[in-house]
Amino acid sequence: MVNYVFRRLLFFPVVFIALSLMIFSLQMLLSPVQRISAYITSNSELKGGREQIEALIKKYGLDEPFLTQYWEWIQNILSGNLGWSETARSPVSEVLISLFPATVELVILAFIPSFLGAVWLGTKAGANLNRPKDHAIRIFTILGWSFPTFVFGLIMLLIFYGYLNWFPPGRLSQWAVTEVESGNFIRYTGANLIDSLLNGRWQIFLDSLRHLIAPIITLTYVNLANMTRVMRTSMLETLRQDYIRTARAKGLSEKIVQNKHARRNALLPVTTMAGMELAYMMGGVVITETIFDYHGLGQFAAHAAANLDFPAVLGFALYFALVLVLLNLVVDLLYPLIDPRVVLK
């Protein structure tokens, strides 16, 4: 068991070396003049002309040979703070740590309804193969899958904020931000919902919830289709099993057969997949976060990628790899609990 966990975690250094080489080689495709852009925020800084650009290239050692630069880069990254992010103007590790709670809060809260919804819808669809209900559910979920997330998100924002003024963008309203930053509010976790509860501040809790709902709806709907599809397929398969026939033959009502016997077994593949799905949501909230002005890792990573901030991109990739490994681990460990037949080697 310990051995198994260890083997899983061993994957991490492999990912680190491979990713760092990959990203570093990619960035070396660019000329020093292009790479200096990561250090320049505005064109007006170029009024010093070529002379200034060359001075900057020298200062940051961008014209050194490949290996020298890679070595320096790796050293910088291994020094504990994962290097310096020029777009965030902070060490990468600091950025990741400070934005992580926000993203986790959003993703977990969106994951729960999409998982439960998928199980529910998938069961219904599977049990009603090719009947109107099945078609309706499939259309409903594929709809969410077939529309650009940013359009759906913008429409949500427009309706819930622009017209109704229920769910504003951002993470907190200005008054709440002032409260939170005032020093009378202790940040335990960085997740607003939890912190406000721990501080016993109902108003802030509600405010933070208000800001979360619209992005949650967007994320949930967009991520519903995949898991529903797997649940449906798995349900179809289970319903053909002998023991289901037996149960039916025993005269149990269809509802009990579906909900008690079939669904439980059908859950297995969905659970496996849910781990991956959750991981991909953690890495793929780029657009939702951008639209709803929700400062989290996704928005940060997108900004970093567009501005060629490679240490930040690597940091984000490492975070994602870690999430992936850990969630896979959790799923693997959960497996024997759901299905006693499975034994970890």
Binding site: L30, V33, Q34, N43, L46, A306
Partner: peptide, 10 residues
């Protein structure tokens, strides 16, 4: 991108 633009100019 502004990076390439700078490359083209400088």
């Amino acid at each position: 991108t502004s990076a390439s633009m700078r490359e083209k100019s400088y």
